[in-house]
Simulated assay, not measured.
Amino acid sequence: MEQELVKGPVWHGWPDQRWTLSRVKTVIGRRFHLTYTLQRARKLLIRNGYSCQVPARRALERDQAAVTGW
């Protein structure tokens, strides 16, 4: 499974570099022909040393120059 995750989401056909539980679950199904729930996929990842992380979101209208000057 780790080898599949190292290849990245783009290699598996998604448009960005974010792994989600849904994507991991899909890769497990495609590669290993197993059906996992989201909770089971999460437990598998945690058991193998992965952690859940939420990307920081920034406002589209953010003015970086104003933030730096503040």
Results as ranks from 00 to 15, higher is better:
M1R: 09
E2V: 03
E2Q: 15
Q3V: 12
Q3K: 15
E4C: 03
E4W: 10
L5E: 00
L5I: 09
G8T: 09
G8N: 12
G8Y: 09
G8V: 10
P9D: 05
H12R: 01
H12N: 07
P15R: 08
D16N: 14
D16S: 13
D16R: 13
Q17H: 14
Q17N: 15
Q17M: 13
S22A: 13
S22Y: 03
R23H: 00
V24K: 01
V24F: 15
K25I: 02
G29C: 07
G29K: 04
R30A: 09
R31I: 09
R31M: 10
F32T: 07
H33L: 03
H33V: 05
L34V: 13
L34F: 08
T35Y: 04
Y36G: 02
L38C: 12
L38S: 13
L38T: 15
Q39A: 14
R40M: 04
R40E: 10
A41F: 02
L44H: 01
L44M: 06
L45I: 05
I46V: 04
I46K: 08
R47V: 05
R47N: 12
R47F: 06
N48R: 06
N48Y: 03
G49I: 07
G49R: 05
Y50V: 01
Y50E: 02
S51D: 03
S51R: 07
C52P: 05
Q53W: 02
P55I: 01
A56I: 08
A56R: 09
A56C: 04
R57L: 14
R58A: 12
R58K: 11
E61H: 10
R62G: 02
R62K: 11
D63L: 06
A65F: 00
V67A: 15
T68D: 12
G69R: 03
W70S: 08
